[in-house]
Design a protein around this nucleic acid. Structure first.
Length: 477
DNA sequence: TTTTGAGTTGTTCGA
DNA sequence: GTCGAACAACTCAAA
C-alpha cells in the first residue's frame, strides 16, 4: 500500500539538496508537490513586483523539473492545506523551514492543527538561527565573533545532497495553473529582466558555475567593482528563492580552492558573505521587529526630513538625482531588478544621510524593485547603512558618491551603461559633471538641468547637516 | 565582576 | 600625490 506526502515548496524551489523532498522519497512516499502563493498571511511583506516576476519563471522551471506535477494554489495556506489533505488521501506533509516572522507563525499554527505527520527541514541556511549563540545562551550582535566563533566554531556546513533520481507522484488532477497567480506585471516594466537573469534551478547552477570560474579568484578586491559584471556572484535571487542551497555554494567554492584554482583569502571572503546572510537571518529570528523598528532606540528621535519625502524621494527612486553613480545604480535596479552591493551602500547612504529620508522609504522601494528582495537581508542592511543597526557603520561614515565613483568605477563605464546622457563625458568629470568646464560639457552634449539633472543636494553641506543631526541625538541621550 | 580590546564596507584635513 | 590622524563614545565579547 503506497503512502502519499505533500511536499510544500516555499523558498526551496529546487530538487538538488532539498531535504524535505529527499526525505519523502527515501521513505517511500508518493508525492504531491505543492506551491501556495500566500499573500493573506504576509502582513506588510507580501512579495514585491520584481520578486513576483522571478517567482513566475522559477515556478515554471520547477514545474518542468517535476514533470508538470506541481500543484498551484493561491490564498491562505492554513485553509488550503487542510482542504488538500482531505481531498487527496495524504499521510504526511514535509517542508523546508522559512524564517520570516509571519511564516514562522503561520507554519507553527498549521503544524499544530494537522493530524497527519509533519516534519520540517533546513534547506536555506548554513546554520540555524538558534545555533550560533554566545556561551551565555544569547545571540551575537557583532558580526565577526558571530561568524568566527558562532558559525565556524559550531560545525561545518552540512554536505550537499544530490537530486533524487526517480520521483513517484501521487495521482492528482486539480493542479491549478501558474498563470492564474498573475505574477507578471500588467505594464511591461520587466522587459529587460530576461536579458540579465535565468530564474530556476538550471539558471542557479549556471550562475554558480560562472562565478566559480570567472569571479571567485580575485573576489576580495574585485567584488567592489560595479563596472565588472563578473565581480560578484549574482547568486542572491537564486539563494533567496532556494534554487540553489548555500551549502552547495559553500562547498563548491571550497572545492575550487582545494583544486588550487582560487586563493584561500578570496574563498574565505566569499564564504563570509554567505555568513552575512546568516547574520541577517539570525537578527531577524531573534528580533523580528527589525523590519520596522530601529534596533538602537536612540534613533527613535532622529530628525528625519519628512518634507523631503515627495520630491527628493522620487528623484532618488527614478535615478534623477543628478549624482551619476547614484542615478546609474537606481536605474540598474529599475532595469534589471538588481543592484551591485557597493552601489546599494552608496545609494542608501545618500538617501538616509544626505537627504535625511527615513530608511523605511529605502527599505520599501528595494522590497518592491529587487528580484532578490529578502526580508532579513533588506531590514538588517538598511539598519546598517542608517547607523541604527546592531553592528552598524559609525555615524561619521558618510559615503561621498563622487569619491566612491572615482574609486570603484574609475573609467565611468558603469555610469555610461545606465546613464546614457553622460556617455560622452570624459572619465575625469563623469562622476561630478557639475565640476566640468563648459567646453567639456558642451563637447559631451550635456546641459545640466536640461539633458541631465543638476544635483538635487549639495554633498558637502548635506554631509555636515547629517553629522549635526547625529550630534543632536547624542546630546539628547 | 571587572577589565580590556575590538568593532565590514569612509572622509577629510593637514603635514 | 601620499599618508596618518581625527572623527566619539559605546557596546559587545571574552578573558
Amino acid at each position: 500500500m503506497s503512502k502519499t506526502a505533500i511536499i510544500w515548496f516555499r523558498q526551496d524551489l529546487r530538487l538538488t539538496d532539498n531535504p524535505a523532498l529527499i526525505h519523502a522519497l527515501q521513505n517511500g512516499y508518493d508525492i504531491v508537490p505543492l506551491y501556495i502563493l500566500d499573500d493573506d498571511n504576509a502582513d506588510d511583506w507580501a512579495m514585491g513586483g520584481a520578486s513576483r516576476w522571478w517567482l513566475h519563471h522559477s515556478l515554471q522551471s520547477l514545474n518542468k523539473s517535476l514533470g508538470g506535477n506541481l500543484v498551484i494554489r493561491n490564498g491562505d495556506a492554513a485553509q488550503i492545506i487542510p482542504k488538500l489533505i482531505k481531498d487527496i488521501k495524504v499521510d504526511a506533509i514535509f517542508w523546508n523551514r522559512c524564517y520570516e516572522p509571519w511564516r514562522i507563525k503561520r507554519d507553527k499554527s498549521i503544524k499544530e492543527s494537522l493530524e497527519i505527520e509533519t516534519q520540517s527541514f533546513n534547506a536555506s541556511l548554513l546554520w540555524e538561527p538558534w545555533e550560533p549563540m554566545k556561551p551565555d545562551g544569547t545571540p551575537y550582535k557583532v558580526f565577526t565573533p558571530f561568524y568566527r566563533k558562532g558559525c565556524l566554531g559550531h560545525s561545518q556546513p552540512a554536505e550537499t545532497q544530490s537530486a533524487p533520481k526517480d520521483i513517484s507522484y501521487a495521482a492528482f488532477d486539480a493542479r491549478g495553473d501558474i498563470d492564474d497567480l498573475k505574477l507578471l506585471p500588467d505594464i511591461s516594466w520587466d522587459a529587460g529582466f530576461k536579458d540579465y537573469w535565468q530564474p530556476g534551478e538550471d539558471g542557479a547552477r549556471a550562475c554558480l558555475k560562472s562565478f566559480l570560474g570567472n569571479g571567485l579568484s580575485g573576489y576580495k578586491e574585485n567584488r567592489n567593482r560595479p563596472d565588472d559584471e563578473h565581480s560578484t556572484s549574482r547568486l542572491s535571487p537564486h539563494l533567496h528563492f532556494g534554487e540553489i542551497s548555500p551549502r552547495q555554494c559553500w562547498h563548491d567554492a571550497r572545492a575550487v580552492q582545494a583544486a588550487g584554482d582560487a586563493p584561500e583569502n578570496d574563498v574565505d571572503h566569499f564564504c563570509s558573505e554567505l555568513g552575512w546572510r546568516e547574520f541577517s537571518y539570525t537578527q531577524l529570528y531573534h528580533q523580528p521587529h527589525i523590519t520596522w523598528e530601529n534596533l538602537q532606540e536612540k534613533f527613535n528621535i532622529f530628525p528625519w526630513n519628512a518634507q523631503r519625502d515627495s520630491k527628493d524621494l522620487k528623484a532618488w527612486q527614478k535615478g534623477q538625482t543628478g549624482i551619476p553613480i547614484v542615478d546609474a545604480a537606481m536605474r540598474q535596479l529599475w532595469q534589471t531588478g538588481w543592484m551591485h552591493n557597493r552601489c546599494r551602500m552608496i545609494v542608501g547612504s545618500l538617501l538616509v544621510k544626505n537627504l535625511m529620508i527615513h530608511w523605511h522609504r529605502g527599505e520599501e522601494w528595494f522590497w518592491d524593485c529587487l528580484i532578490d528582495a529578502d526580508l532579513a537581508n533588506n531590514a538588517a542592511s538598511w539598519q546598517w547603512i542608517a547607523g541604527c543597526g546592531a553592528d552598524a557603520a559609525p555615524y561619521f561614515r558618510i559615503f561621498n558618491p563622487v569619491t566612491q565613483g572615482e574609486k570603484f568605477d574609475p573609467d565611468g563605464d558603469y555610469v555610461r551603461e545606465f546613464v546614457p546622457e553622460l556617455k560622452d563625458m570624459p572619465a575625469k568629470y563623469i562622476h561630478s559633471p557639475w565640476d566640468a568646464p563648459n567646453d567639456v560639457l558642451q563637447k559631451a552634449g550635456v546641459t545640466l538641468g536640461d539633458t541631465y539633472p543638476a544635483p538635487i543636494v549639495d554633498l558637502k553641506k548635506s554631509r555636515q547637516r547629517a553629522l549635526d543631526a547625529f550630534t543632536s541625538l547624542k546630546d539628547a541621550a
